[in-house]
């Protein structure tokens, strides 16, 4: 589903990604761990066309990110084509980023209604279903600031799911939450994984990574240091950098 080969990204002279190689199969859950500033968010943003890569190749579902191949030429995607690509990938942010001026229902239907131009009635029904699924059926008409952090994050997940994405990206979805609210969000993500959603999750929840992840990738300094089976990477890391990172967070 996602294939990265030698992905490079620099901000000015600061090289943030120095050749990332990894693959995510359809239906697989990949957990991305690593110290702060190692480029995890940057990599996720590259997958979702929010950043342009400077080198290497990145493809989602067999199509290059940011380019369209025609014959043996690559054409840079136009703005509306980029929007179309993003619409197929769901993203959940650390700080929720719900639209505060819109009710929960309007937040969830915003994508289907405005981007996919779906009919209003079915969008609303679907939004209610999704809210029910994340356990917030009674919050349809609430505004985001009337919800707890955990509830907001579950609405954000529902909002992303409303676009029927083929891939979900999570950037530290539970880092801004009080410990007792983390569980509800992780439950929703676990259900998604069980249903076969392809997911890339940047997380500090090692227990969750081990339980739900099919692969754990440890990144540091803009490169993938180690990857493999979660239990193996988390309990018996092969690299010194992985060991010292895990010693700090576990």
């Amino acid at each position: 589903m996602v294939e990265a080969i030698g992905v490079h990204k620099a901000y000015g002279r600061l090289e943030v990604l120095k050749g990332i190689d990894l693959t995510v199969q359809r239906g697989e859950v990949l957990c991305l761990i690593g110290p702060s500033g190692s480029g995890k968010s940057t990599f996720l943003r590259c997958i979702n066309h929010l950043e342009k890569i400077d080198g290497g190749a990145l493809s989602v579902d067999g199509e290059l990110v940011g380019y369209r191949q025609s014959g043996n030429r690559l054409y840079e995607l136009k703005d509306h084509e980029v929007c179309g690509k993003r619409a197929e990938i769901g993203m959940v942010f650390q700080r929720f980023n719900l639209f505060p001026h819109m009710s929960v229902l309007d937040n969830i239907t915003s994508g289907p209604l405005w981007v996919k131009k779906a009919p209003g009635g079915s969008s609303k029904d679907r939004a209610r279903q999704l809210l029910d699924r994340v356990g917030l059926a009674d919050k349809v008409d609430a505004y985001p600031n009337q919800l707890s952090g955990g509830q907001q994050q579950r609405v954000a997940i529902a909002r992303a799911l409303a676009m029927d994405p083929k891939l979900m990206l999570f950037d530290e979805p539970t880092s801004a939450l009080d410990p007792e609210l983390v569980g509800d969000v992780l439950d929703v993500m676990r259900d998604l994984a069980d249903e076969g959603m392809t997911m890339i999750i940047v997380t500090h929840e090692m227990g969750f990574a081990r339980e739900v992840g099919d692969v754990v990738v440890f990144m540091d300094g803009g490169v993938v240091v180690e990857q493999g089976d979660p239990t193996q990477v988390l309990t018996d890391p092969q690299h010194e950098r992985t060991r010292s990172f895990l010693a700090k967070v576990l």
Partner: peptide
């Protein structure tokens, strides 16, 4: 800025984001 980013991740164009997300706020 997270608002623009969230709108972009849903596939909204710049104009749509400005009209529906940024200006109302």
């Amino acid at each position: 800025e997270g608002q623009t980013e969230a709108a972009a991740s849903l596939g909204m164009s710049k104009g749509l984001t400005l009209r529906k997300i940024v200006l109302p706020q």
